[in-house]
Simulated scan of single mutants.
Amino acid sequence: MNDILLKTLDGQLVERPPVWLMRQAGRILPQYRAVRSNMKSFKDLVKNPVKAAEVTIQPVDELGVDAAILFSDILVIPEAMGLDYNLVEKKGPMFPTTIQSWDDIAALIDGEEAALKLEYVYNAITETKDQLNDRVPLIGFTGAPWTLFCYMLEGEGSKTFSKARRFLYQHPEWSHKLLQKISATVAEYLKIQIEKGVDCVQIFDSWAGCLGTQQYHEFGLKYIRWILEQLPENTRTIVFSKGAHASMEELLDLPCKALGFDWQIEAEYIASQVNGQKVVQGNLDPCVLYADNEEIVRSTQRLLSVFKGGHIVNLGHGVYPDTPLSGVKKFVDEVKSFRY
């Protein structure tokens, strides 16, 4: 087994940092596009355990990354709670109905009852583990409560998520109740993923940067902390709070193994602030992979030179769908040839 990722998360010395990419199972791979073209929708692919396992493993075979991340979607949680969504090509997620009142919140199911509706995800984990045969670890994941809250209030993607943020001010008690329900579901969801065999889990808080520091403490990090505290002891956990740079001190205090960082914060600053307290994941600008090989090598080497261990190399966000496959491979190969 290639367990370099797990050793890094456990604080062990390794000869080089592990590398994987957020959204590595997707449109950058022709194999993925071939599978997707034969499915009626993205959701059909997510809900087909055999096909989900196939596309989960594709980047391991094609790119040689050090981990697979389960092919799924963060919005399976709102759907399991009773809020359906569609994924519209080139537009992203769309919710036919959104949360607008206390009655809407009260009507949602949560916790174990909701998590058990996601059997197709757990079957995909089993199928993936069988096919991977311990070649590399399998990462499970979920959206964070605040990010899921954003979609459930807004109904779609947004640059500002002003509807969701407005709701926090107008209805703080309702907001906390919804976040509690989401958190209870997420915690049970992750526990079942762990029982089914994922080797570590990542919490994606994609819209953390939409909130100010105090609001992110109150409506974001408090719930992430609670979820982490519900998981089995020694669970390998990664928290990626995109844009939450001002909350560094509180992020470092979370009971997780690793913190992911976006590309809008310098690696040198991250290293100086983290100072060995957590494993660092990230934080190359995804657009570097559009550059020529010389620039990809230069940027990757600069990132690698900052950390002397305790680093999972990744992008500062998901790899963009039209990224040249050659650029992705060059990045991965450069990391794999590096030695401390």
Rank of each mutant, 00 (worst) to 15 (best):
N86K: 15
V65F: 12
T97C: 11
T97F: 13
Y120G: 06
A67W: 08
V50G: 01
Q131R: 15
G82D: 09
T98H: 14
N86S: 13
V46M: 07
K159A: 13
T56W: 03
V55I: 14
M152D: 13
L75H: 06
Y120S: 09
A144G: 02
A115Y: 14
I74T: 03
K90T: 11
P137E: 06
Y151N: 06
A106H: 07
L118G: 11
R135D: 01
A114S: 15
L45N: 07
I105G: 05
T98V: 15
Y120W: 12
S72Y: 12
N86Y: 15
K40M: 10
E112F: 07
K90N: 15
G143A: 03
V136W: 09
W102C: 03
E156W: 00
K40Q: 10
A107M: 04
V121Y: 02
F42A: 12
G143L: 00
L45T: 07
D130N: 08
I109E: 10
Y151P: 06
V88Q: 08
A68I: 03
V76L: 12
Q100D: 07
S101A: 09
E113S: 14
L118W: 04
R135E: 09
V46Q: 05
K47T: 05
F95W: 13
F71H: 04
L138A: 02
D61E: 12
L116H: 11
L132T: 03
D134A: 07
S158D: 06
Y120P: 07
Y85I: 11
K47F: 05
I139M: 12
I125V: 15
P93V: 04
L118A: 14
R135W: 11
E112P: 02
L45D: 09
R135I: 09
P59C: 10
G155D: 01
Y85M: 09
D44K: 04
K117A: 13
A80C: 12
A144W: 04
E154A: 10
E156D: 08
I69Q: 10
K91C: 00
D130Y: 07
P93F: 10
W146K: 03
I69E: 03
K40E: 02
K159N: 14
A53Q: 01
D110A: 13
F42Y: 13
V136Q: 07
K117T: 12
I69P: 06
A124M: 08
V46H: 04
E62W: 01
V60H: 00
V136H: 05
L148K: 08
A144V: 02
L132K: 04
W146G: 01
V76Q: 04
P93W: 12
V65M: 13
K47P: 00
V60M: 05
L75Q: 00
C150P: 07
E62C: 01
L153D: 05
V46A: 05
P137D: 05
P49H: 03
L83V: 14
P59T: 12
K159V: 05
